[in-house]
Write a protein that binds this DNA or RNA. Structure first.
Lengths: 70, 84, 70, 84
DNA sequence: TGCGGCTGACGTCAGCCCAA
DNA sequence: TTGGGCTGACGTCAGCCGCA
């Protein structure tokens, strides 16, 4: 059983490899999509935090200048 | 180490950083709010108690939570900022 | 010329479509990769701006409290 | 409109927002620096003149510029912040 | 050291959406 | 309305790198 059996085993192993890689590719694409959404959400969060920090810094600066004027 | 290869590690890294930054952000905002609370008692009166934390979710709101805003990446930190 | 000629024209059109879509797919993947790098760079920039804003806010808060103590 | 479909439009949108935010960021930093320049003349003395703007590049440094830091997304706004 | 898990890149199919 | 430009998703190949 060195001829046909070996070829059949190789064919089965190849099919197994393709199946494994197929599912791995699906999971990889899903993770990549999730990573992109993670980045977009992180950008939005940092954007709002930046706005809030700038507003707070502006308010505190006005308060500081007002109190410094006395 | 700084730039992982697996996507799961990248997501975990960004999630961790975002958690730390959000903690520092809320801390400094609270400190400034406490420092300016005496001269401005009407400023945060109705906003500071609205930080029950259900809007600035830490992760990427992916998978579950099809609500909250239902429109992609539009989260809003909502620390009494940008309130029409 | 309705038989073989039409099939040849269809084959050429199909080949043209495949070629066009092939190049479009390459450009699309390139743009997607560029978009991801754009997001990562934007996150880094916003990160540093957040740090700087928090530091500045902290310094100004200390200055404000110090001057308020008088 | 808010979420374009083409990648080029997304890149252009993020680049535009980043330019505006960077402008507001530098403006408020300069204002605070000017307001606190009298009581702290030694604080920004060696940093405020270092904003020749060559480090906080506005776009994504993609395509050209294989230098600057040569290590992926590690830009640093460098407004006298995080300086070892 | 070799094997297997993930990912980069490719070509193809299907589908959306806007300008002819 | 419809053809064509872009993109989402799939399967496959090639390559890297951690781990047994």
């Amino acid at each position: 059983n060195l001829g046909g059996g070996g070829n059949e085993d190789q064919a089965r192993k190849r099919e197994m490899r393709l199946l494994k890689n197929r599912e791995a590719a699906r999971e990889c694409r899903r993770k990549k999509k999730e990573y992109i959404k993670c980045l977009e959400n992180r950008v939005a969060v940092l954007e709002n935090q930046n706005k809030a920090l700038i507003d707070e810094l502006k308010s505190l600066k006005e308060l500081y200048c007002q109190q410094k004027g006395d | 180490m700084a730039n992982p290869r697996k996507f799961s590690e990248k997501i975990a890294l960004h999630t961790h950083r975002q958690a730390e930054e959000t903690a520092r952000f809320e801390q400094i905002m609270k400190e400034v709010s406490d420092a300016t609370a005496r001269v401005q008692p009407e400023r945060n009166a109705k906003y500071v108690l609205g930080v029950n934390s259900n809007e600035n979710l830490g992760s990427f709101q992916g998978g579950s939570l099809p609500n909250v805003s239902a429109g992609g990446p539009t989260i809003k930190t909502s620390h009494n900022a940008d309130m029409p």
